[in-house]
Design a protein around this nucleic acid. Structure first.
Length: 566
RNA sequence: CGGGGUGUAGCUCAGUAUGGUUAGAGUACUUGGUUUGGGACCAAGGGGCCGAAGGUUCGAGUCCUUUCACCCCGACCA
């Protein structure tokens, strides 16, 4: 492609509403342009990058035997009513009616559609396993789209669905997809981490997220300093604490603690480590048809992980409560404890199981219990509801955990029979009995990957595309197109590279050197060959974008050198 | 959905507190000339329903009301 023909509107200034590097540079370099909130056009170079990523995904999916299909974007609302997700998705589902007043939605994900595609057609265990996928536009009417391509309303996603006769086979496929996804991200040149995730709302037995590490990531993940362990903060676990402080010695007793309400005050007042205090966190649980207040008890030194709390209580949402709401149900803020408390339901953090010498609220103003043995509560509901902190121990080795930020570019689920059951998608097993499919679902955000690549690979001058993601590998830049020798060599090199199947552009625009160089850096071609005034001495230059280094090469050798590099 | 902010040329923004010639700059664009190794220079041009609707006024980009859009923080996010 000649840059004199390419539609590549680069700008010196970023659009005023862009804040992230990926948004700024993809806009400035003419890859995308915004249409409305969360909606973007892809210009020629942007489209080219999308195709690159799609091709890599297709190759890796082909390698594990997944088959590409394409489902319709507009989907009948009936399917969503059948699965019950029309309510669950709420306003994120964009709905509309056709001329016959039939209700449709724009597909935000395609579990229903895919199950519908195979049910009553795949009817025997002999036809399993089956893994179908597509790369297709999705639409989710997000409450707050933001950060350019990172969180759009319309976006390109690869979504795959596998069907199995048993759990072992799902496990095998799940692992195969994980490996394939690793290959995709590795080929794209990304620094990433696979982390354990909360599989909460969608259900199933496990899920993992693929996180591209970047400061601008929206997710916090806990990673181990020594081993491969990583988890979304919403699902992260930790080892048992080793440096346990000295326990306070006290007989079980009710103790006067006037006006001592916070954990900090309590440990100060009693001169004990907050490890031995019991913190009470009150939340209002929201369910489909009702709400109720519940208490969560943890060690005073820990804090509540709301997503975990939400999962164990099966609530749709958790909201904060104030003191008056607590009073209304007979709870006394600052003195709430699990003992002698039957006003509301409560969950105790698993770390408190069998804990001794604890201090907790007595559910009576100005009193705490001391010397509490949590074993007396062993009928209570214990669950992991704690949020891991930086410095906590890794659950799998002796390393420590620290936080980092990640961009979620993929999420793989072991779905089980969640959808096949409600949608009555069944097959006959070897004994002739009907069983619902065991399913897996695997998503990868293609347009988000475009942004993620730039978040991880840019500098103050613009994009730095990795080799497998670059829209063009080589930019042949003719410094001065009025110089016939320069232009002739540029044309020849351009033709030679094309003949060698290299993706190449020729910068034959009537612009000055500085302008072209700035553009080359902004767009981020991995290699720019500068044919300029040194040609008089038989030399040209290779500019490498990753290092910003320039290297003089003899003009007659340039083709060999560049072919060797790429 | 709560809180905050911004809408003026293709883009980035002045101008709005205190209403008053024909609404400005930079950049981009067109034409001619000079230039040609880090977003050149000179000259001449084209380009605006001042987000929209209503109102106040002799007069509104500027004041009032309503509304729409976009951005940021939060809530939300299979």
């Amino acid at each position: 492609m000649r840059l004199s023909n390419l539609y590549l509107p680069t700008t010196k200034e970023a659009p005023s509403d862009a804040s992230l590097p990926s948004h700024i540079f993809l806009s400035r370099a003419g890859f995308i342009s915004q249409v409305a909130s969360g909606l973007y056009n892809f210009l020629p170079l942007g489209k080219k990058v999308l195709k690159k990523i799609e091709n890599i995904i297709n190759e890796e999916m082909e390698a594990i035997g997944a088959q590409e299909v394409e489902l319709s974007f507009v989907t009948p609302a009936e399917l969503w009513q059948e699965s019950g997700r029309i309510e669950k998705f709420g306003k994120e589902l964009l709905r509309f009616k056709d001329r016959k007043e039939n209700l449709f939605v724009l597909g935000p994900t395609h579990e229903e559609m895919m199950v519908n595609l195979v049910r009553n057609k795949v009817t025997s265990y002999k036809q399993l396993p089956l893994h179908l996928y597509q790369i297709k536009t999705k639409f989710r009417d997000e409450a707050r789209p933001r950060f350019g391509l990172m969180r759009g309303r319309e976006f390109l996603m690869k979504d795959g669905y596998s069907f199995h006769a048993n759990v072992e086979d799902l496990d095998r496929e799940f692992n195969a997809v994980e490996e394939a996804y690793k290959k995709v991200l590795t080929r794209l040149g990304l620094n990433f981490r696979i982390v354990e995730a909360d599989s909460g709302a969608i259900g199933g037995t496990g899920s993992k997220e693929l996180m591209v590490l970047a400061d601008s990531g929206e997710d916090t993940i806990a990673v181990c300093s020594k081993c491969e362990y990583g988890a979304n903060i919403e699902a992260a676990k930790r080892s048992e604490r080793l440096d346990i402080p000295e326990a306070p010695q006290a007989q079980f007793n009710k103790f006067l603690t006037p006006d001592v309400k916070s954990i900090e005050d309590l440990s100060e007042f009693l001169k004990i480590d907050s490890y031995y205090t019991v913190k009470a966190v009150a939340k209002r649980l929201v369910f489909e048809d009702r709400t109720e207040i519940a208490l969560f008890f943890l060690r005073g030194c820990d804090s509540l992980q709301e997503k975990k709390a939400q999962s164990v209580t099966k609530a749709i949402d958790l909201v904060d409560v104030d003191e008056s709401e607590l009073e209304a149900v007979g709870l006394i803020a600052g003195f709430m404890g699990p003992l002698d408390q039957d006003k509301v339901k409560y969950v105790i953090d698993a770390d408190l199981y069998e804990a001794k010498n604890m201090i907790c609220g007595a559910n009576e103003k100005d009193y705490h219990f001391v010397g509490v043995d949590m074993l007396v509560l062993n009928d209570a509901f214990f669950a992991d509801i704690v949020e891991v902190k930086e410095g906590d121990g890794c659950p799998y080795c002796d390393g420590t955990l620290s936080y980092t930020k990640g961009i979620e570019v993929g999420h793989i689920f072991k779905l089980g029979t969640t959808y096949s059951k409600v949608l009555k998608a069944e097959f006959l097993n070897e004994r002739g009995q009907a069983e619902p499919f065991i399913m897996g679902t695997y998503g990868m955000g293609v347009s988000r990957l475009v942004a993620a690549i730039i978040e991880q690979h840019h500098d103050e001058n613009g994009c730095i595309w990795t080799k497998e993601s670059a829209p063009y590998m080589v930019n042949v830049m003719v410094s001065n197109v009025k110089d016939e020798a320069q232009l002739a060599l540029g044309e020849k090199l351009y033709a030679d590279l094309k003949a060698n199947r290299v993706e190449v552009v020729l910068d034959d625009r009537k612009e000055r050197f500085g302008f072209k160089m700035k553009d080359a850096e902004l767009v981020g071609y991995p290699y720019t060959i500068v044919i300029g005034k040194e040609l008089e001495n038989g030399m040209v230059q290779i500019f490498e974008r990753t290092t910003s280094s320039k290297e003089d090469i003899k003009a007659e050798k340039i083709l060999d050198v560049i072919m060797d590099r790429i």
